[in-house]
């Protein structure tokens, strides 16, 4: 069993919910990445999603777009990120998931990429522009390295397809809560609960909700129907403002619930 499966097993035993924060590697300089990962672990993260900056992030809203631009300006590369993650692996015990668009991987070379992230102790990958129709170019190598591909479903995904997608993975299913791009939102579609319930029913693996989640109220509401949340834009924003106390409060949500 890999680190991802173990974490969810543990969570399950304690009846807990997952909090997976996202940060943009290289935002604030690549040299602070390890410290930030340690901080997120200390604040109670179940796993961490590490974003790789890309020049053309079509699935992302302005907050993550701008973080990517800052990271690229400070000359962040995928190679540099993997080097830092290898250092982090000595200190960070929770799963690390790399979130990257496909082209940086393709330019790196798929074989070299899988080998290097395996050596760096990366546990999973999320690739927002790699639908199941195209994943054969990467999944066999990832599987051999025991790295999970985390797949996404969205409110635009038909139920039959959700079943098909959920059945392929072992880590968790990433359930996009909106028809849209990343970014903080105040309101979700009124019929979201129904969708969450349906996905949860269809999925043999844990289901985490993500995209647009920024407040404890939203998290409490959503986790009635799923196993946890991914919080991206809000965490990126709080890192940029260096508002760590707010981040700690937001991330303590499940500790409080279960005391």
């Amino acid at each position: 069993m890999n680190r991802l499966e173990q974490s969810f097993e543990l969570l399950n035993e304690n009846d807990g919910k997952a909090f997976v924060p996202y940060l943009m590697a290289g935002d604030g300089g690549l040299e602070c990445l390890v410290d930030r990962l340690l901080l997120l672990e200390k604040f109670g993260a179940t796993a961490i999603e590490v974003g790789v900056p890309f020049s053309d992030p079509v699935a992302d809203g302005p907050i993550i777009q701008n973080a990517g631009i800052r990271a690229l300006k400070s000359r962040t590369t995928l190679k540099g990120i993997i080097t830092e993650l290898a250092k982090a692996r000595e200190l960070v015990t929770i799963p690390i998931i790399l979130m990257t668009y496909l082209n940086p991987i393709y330019a790196y070379g798929i074989g070299a990429f899988v080998q290097d992230i395996q050596n760096a102790g990366v546990d999973g990958c999320i690739i927002p522009d790699l639908p199941i129709e195209e994943e054969d170019m990467l999944v066999p190598q990832l599987a051999e390295a025991q790295i999970e591909l985390i797949r996404l479903v969205t409110p635009a995904t038909p139920l039959e397809r959700i079943k098909q997608i959920a059945g392929r993975g072992k880590g968790f299913l990433y359930m996009v809560t909106v028809k849209g791009i990343t970014g903080t939102r105040n309101l979700f579609q009124h019929d979201l609960n129904q969708f969450l319930r349906a996905v949860k029913e269809l999925s043999p693996i844990p289901v985490l909700a993500g995209f647009g989640i920024s407040s404890q109220e939203q998290i409490n509401e959503l986790t009635k129907y799923c196993d946890g949340v991914v919080v991206g834009s809000r965490i990126v924003e709080l890192f940029e403002k260096n508002n760590l106390s707010e981040m700690e409060i937001l991330m303590s949500i499940f500790n409080k619930n279960h005391k």
């Binding site: 522009d129 639908p131 129709e133 195209e134 996404l152 479903v153 969205t154 997608i165």
Partner: peptide
């Protein structure tokens, strides 16, 4: 070629 798009667009 291929279809390298976010899942939200696959149905469409």
């Amino acid at each position: 070629g291929g279809r390298f798009v976010p899942e939200t667009l696959m149905k469409a």
